[in-house]
Write a protein that binds this DNA or RNA. Structure first.
Lengths: 161, 161
DNA sequence: GAAGATTGATCATTCAATCTTG
DNA sequence: CAAGATTGAATGATCAATCTTC
């Protein structure tokens, strides 16, 4: 192979800064979430799409897509959250293979209690540190970047090298 | 408490895009790294600062800072990597409490073999998806954001609420 | 046979001690 | 007693079956 093109200073700053910013933000915001609401970041992530879903119910398959996880991880997570009474599993009417995940009253209460201070933390550590131009740019850039990523399933159009 | 200021569409797009971009990028780039080099993302992260250190050695404490991990996590990781012969532990001359972590020849070979295609993947999925203005902006914005985060240790200047 | 989902084993990370030295 | 580091237990995530239904 030919000598690779290493990252220059600006490129390295963007890439390493992105990785470090994620790590440090999650530590700060996730720690705050746990301290103030008793919810882990994973629990919060699951509760959000459920609380936004019509009827407070989603199919496990769709919930997995919403949070961007694999089926297996979601299943384990749901089991733990069901034990904590945040969600319940139900049968799926339309498709007997499927499983529905429903927000409980306790789950609704938990996300309702957690959301304000969590949003506040996202403002304080993420949005308030950025200019409005930067917020705009991040949305645009990450949207384009994600659209360019190869789809993980059922795609044959990916060339190597 | 007063009604919180929820995120508007642009703000939510930036925040959720940031989270999703990290998740999807790590899945793609990390999976590629493992497939092509047999190294996990964590192993790669540890090997980089070691390979850049003078003499291929770092104190565990400094290595922990370099990768942004807690001591405990690094210690477990080093144990696993020592078992794979990528690094070795050594005594610290200056301070008998300390431990040194040294890159082995096999570790040097592993990072040397892995780096080119990894950098290529970072280019393909991250840098090439962004304009040069966006790369510049990301570096600046994340740098400022990280500087504004509360330091985790030995700081008393943090107010609550 | 493929999609949806779950389970158990393995591996990784976190958390609370513990130990040694400064 | 604080700093540096390690350990073991508990929690969380990944991977390879497995099971059921389409």
């Amino acid at each position: 192979v030919a000598e690779p093109r290493w990252l220059d200073e600006t490129e390295a700053r963007a890439w390493r800064g992105f990785l470090a910013a994620y790590r440090e933000l999650m530590a700060e915001i996730g720690g705050r979430l746990m301290a103030e609401s008793g919810l882990s970041a994973a629990e919060y992530e699951v509760l959000v799409p459920l609380s936004e879903a019509p009827g407070d119910v989603l199919r496990a398959r769709d919930l997995a897509v919403a949070v961007g996880w694999e089926r297996s991880r979601l299943s384990h997570q749901i089991s733990r959250m069901a034990k904590r009474d945040l969600v319940v599993r139900e049968d799926c009417e339309e498709d007997a293979r499927g499983a529905m995940v429903r927000l409980t009253d306790a789950g609704r209460a938990a996300i309702t209690a957690a959301a304000p201070s969590h949003v506040e933390a996202v403002r304080q550590y993420f949005l308030d540190a950025l200019t409005s131009e930067e917020v705009e740019t991040l949305g645009t850039a990450f949207g384009r970047l994600r659209a360019a990523l190869p789809r993980e399933k059922g795609e044959q159009g990916q060339e190597r090298g």
